[in-house]
Design a protein around this nucleic acid. Structure first.
Lengths: 130, 130
DNA sequence: TGACTATATAACTATACAGTTATATAGTGC
DNA sequence: GCACTATATAACTGTATAGTTATATAGTCA
């Protein structure tokens, strides 16, 4: 978990070429699981530890049915882990690499925003907005 | 570019919480751009350097119109850079972090596949398949 | 100029899926 | 058993978009 990005990149190139048609579809579906604002919001809400469906529903501002559907999908892709205790069901981030993924994306977007100053505001830190 | 994944993760957590509604949508769209098998195939084909639309059309097995559409989209998200020379238009990977993204995803899927042996075959290296 | 090639785009179809509403399932405590 | 709460799911609607076909645009060369 402490290998450098540079070596990761090299590892990547060899792995990437090894991906066949079916694997590409699999990878694409995985990205698709992360390609929904509401799901990102849910993952975001899970950063500081597990939460049950009710909590996530409230935090995300979605409906219970909708959040439940998203959680089911996230669990299918092993992005979150599910654990029922009593009548509640608790979800937690399954793998910290989810955050690494988001970091890379946010980093890229951050760089791009230096060229588009008006969108840069999107990344005002929570401290500044409070 | 040589900071460790561990520190990236920490950086990530602070950044992630700073993302507001609009930024989440932006990140989601970015993931969506990567969530198509054909686009991944095109990016894959660009790994060993720039190629024009005809070459990419042939390599990907898609139609010219379809590949052109995908390339336009990839360029919009700054995943590829466009450069026309004569009647040809050459595309190249805009940013190596695209590969880092894929590495993280492929790594995750790789781990998951140790649990699902039947899907593991998907990752047979190209040497083995030839 | 016109013929030829490469790329982009417009218009269309079919499919996938996010979100909604209503209902089912399952656990708890009486 | 019943009432209550939490979560999941079924059925539906609307929207977004991948892929197709046909056409437009633009560069090259005679």
């Amino acid at each position: 978990m402490s290998i450098s990005i540079k070596s990761l990149h090299i590892t990547m190139e060899s792995k990437m070429s090894a991906l066949n048609e079916q694997a590409l579809e699999y990878v694409a579906k995985y990205f698709k699981a992360l390609a929904e604002p509401m799901r990102l919001k849910v993952l975001n809400a899970l950063q500081d530890g597990e939460k049950n469906v009710s909590q996530l529903t409230q935090l995300s501002g979605g409906t219970q049915a909708n959040i439940s559907k998203h959680l089911t999908l996230l669990a299918q892709y092993n992005l979150v882990k599910r654990e029922s205790r009593g009548t509640n069901v608790y979800y937690r981030i399954a793998d910290p690499s989810v955050y690494e993924l988001c970091e890379l994306v946010c980093g890229q977007i951050g760089n791009r925003m230096t060229l588009e100053e008006d969108i840069k505001k999107l990344f005002i830190t929570s401290n500044q907005t409070e």
